[in-house]
Design a protein around this nucleic acid. Structure first.
Lengths: 167, 167
DNA sequence: CGTATATAGTTAGGACCCTAAGTAAATGAG
DNA sequence: CTCATTTACTTAGGGTCCTAACTATATACG
């Protein structure tokens, strides 16, 4: 059996964490995509399923589209398309039921719920494989640093207009 | 002036670095996209320009498509499309000149080179803004940890087939 | 009350990424 | 030398993301 994965040349070391982050994310995507493909979904679709499942555990029937948009860091039109495809494949339902006639609630179907549960069974193993290169201390440090950076990036994003003046 | 940026709800803290990485990357994309848009290009197009520019500094006229694919972590068909659009907008040229008639070399046009140089002028400032939330030590630690993780992820990606058996 | 504004979601159109399958040139084995 | 395989790139088709502009409902203010 010959190796099917393309090899990616190692590049010159970055002088700041930016390139490392971008590259780590790229690799992560490349690893996770075939993983999710085995279940017939994409990473984005997993994001929807996972969030709806979490919502159910908190006693909610579903989540409105805007809520999903915020949680997944994607714009509402992207959620519309994503949910469209997932409705078509039977994983979620879109109900316009609330008192506010504008909102649509997205809910797991029985099929969607079963899929989430099936994926979650092996999920921790998969996460462990991804993290296996780092010891517990490294993981904690990395999480702390990324969290700190994320905080900063959220501020930069919010203050975009003032930032533009600094440049 | 009202804030135009959407606010994104802070979410439950992650129990591992994965979600932090994903979220940090999402924020980064969201910050950088408007930044590059001001120059009429996307982040991916910047990746092409930057790599071609670096190649020139190393004395190369251009890079072949496969080389770009490896450097950018994207598949050859994606490079084809990206380069198509950039040829159309006059930033790069595609020359099939080498002894090997299969390969196409992508090169900066004068216009593309000028754009890279114009962007590079303010680039360090922009990078500094992104990193401003972290002190020098944090930056070094973060880079070291991300680099270590990246190494591991590269191994996971290469050994995909054996990995599938472990799961 | 009635109109102006804000909010929830969709549609339209384009960029970017993927896999699968094709074309054309180079290489290698008999 | 010839034919099979490999390599470089493109084409086709689909998923995900974006911005801009639209529809419909809700709210707020004079």
């Amino acid at each position: 059996m010959k190796p099917k994965t393309l090899s990616y040349k190692s590049l010159a070391p970055a002088d700041n964490p930016l390139r490392e982050l971008i590259r780590a994310f790229g690799l992560l995507e490349r690893i996770m995509q075939p993983y999710f493909a085995r279940f017939g979904i994409s990473g984005s679709q997993w994001g929807i399923l996972r969030n709806l499942h979490r919502a159910e555990e908190e006693g909610l029937r579903g989540l409105r589209l805007t809520e999903l948009s915020q949680r997944l860091l994607i714009r509402p039109p992207s959620v519309t398309g994503l949910v469209d495809r997932m409705v078509r494949s039977g994983l979620v339902a879109r109900d316009g039921s609330t008192a506010d006639l504008r909102v649509k609630e997205v809910q797991l179907t029985r099929m969607g719920r079963k899929l989430v549960e099936r994926i979650l069974e092996g999920h921790q193993d998969q996460v462990n494989i991804l993290l296996a290169g780092l010891g517990d201390d490294d993981q904690k440090d990395l999480m702390r640093l990324l969290s700190k950076w994320r905080d900063h990036l959220e501020n930069v994003l919010q203050g975009e207009t003032t930032l533009r003046n600094i440049i």
